[in-house]
Amino acid sequence: MKVVIIEDEKIKRITLRDALLKEGYEVVDFESPIFAVNYIEQNDVDVVVTDIRLPDMDGMEVLKIIKKINPNIMVIMITAYGTIENAVEAMKLGAYDYITKPFSSERLIMILKKIEKYKELEKENIELKKTP
């Protein structure tokens, strides 16, 4: 499963990337949401983990753009400034989950495992529908 991380906080970004690589995920990380969006437009991506507060473009805008590029990409929003309003807005825009900082890499990995199971079931369902 290919995961893109968009996080301007370098230590958090590297920590998440290393933890996900260790779990066997294919990971590409970006400080800039603009570079990340360009990458997502040109590559197959399963999941995007994005901070809400970013330079140049906020995470909600990133979420909207990703969902236009490919509505099947699962987006996990992360923020140190979580509010119920932000969480509700993110979910309405199609976010899969919303996590407030600080959080452990294990929590993110648990969410990614749920997404993997969901995608496996979805694939299985499509295959079953093809069977006469």
Rank of each mutant, 00 (worst) to 15 (best):
M1Y: 02
K2A: 03
K2W: 04
K2D: 05
K2F: 02
V3L: 04
V4C: 06
I5P: 03
I5N: 02
I5D: 01
I5G: 02
I5K: 04
I6A: 01
E7Q: 00
D8N: 10
E9H: 09
I11H: 09
K12I: 13
K12C: 07
T15A: 13
T15V: 13
L16A: 01
L16H: 06
R17V: 04
R17I: 00
D18H: 11
D18W: 05
D18C: 08
D18K: 14
A19D: 06
A19V: 06
A19C: 09
A19F: 03
A19S: 14
L20G: 03
L21V: 14
L21W: 07
K22P: 02
Y25Q: 04
Y25M: 05
V27D: 00
D29K: 10
S32P: 07
P33Y: 02
P33A: 06
P33I: 00
I34K: 13
F35Q: 15
N38R: 15
N38I: 02
N38E: 15
N38F: 08
N38T: 13
Y39W: 03
Y39S: 06
D44W: 12
V45I: 15
V45G: 11
D46V: 12
V47S: 03
V47M: 08
V49Y: 05
T50R: 00
T50C: 02
D51S: 10
I52H: 04
I52N: 05
R53S: 08
L54F: 00
L54K: 01
P55L: 03
M60N: 05
E61V: 12
E61W: 01
V62D: 03
K64F: 02
I65G: 06
I65L: 13
I66H: 01
K67Q: 05
K67P: 12
K67D: 03
K68L: 15
K68E: 12
I69W: 08
N72Q: 12
M74V: 11
V75W: 00
V75Y: 01
M77L: 10
M77F: 03
I78R: 01
I78C: 07
I78N: 06
T79I: 04
T79N: 08
T79S: 08
I84H: 09
E85A: 15
V88K: 14
V88N: 07
E89N: 13
E89I: 13
A90E: 05
M91W: 07
M91I: 15
M91P: 09
M91V: 11
K92A: 10
L93W: 13
A95Q: 12
Y96V: 09
Y96G: 00
Y98Q: 12
Y98H: 11
I99E: 02
T100Y: 08
T100D: 11
P102D: 05
S105M: 12
E106L: 14
L108C: 09
L108K: 07
L108S: 08
I109S: 07
I111C: 00
K113T: 12
K113S: 12
K113W: 11
I115Y: 11
K117A: 08
Y118M: 13
Y118L: 14
E120W: 09
E122S: 14
E122F: 11
K123D: 14
K123E: 14
E124D: 13
N125I: 04
E127Y: 10
L128K: 15
L128E: 10
L128S: 10
K129C: 06
K129M: 07
K130D: 08
T131N: 12
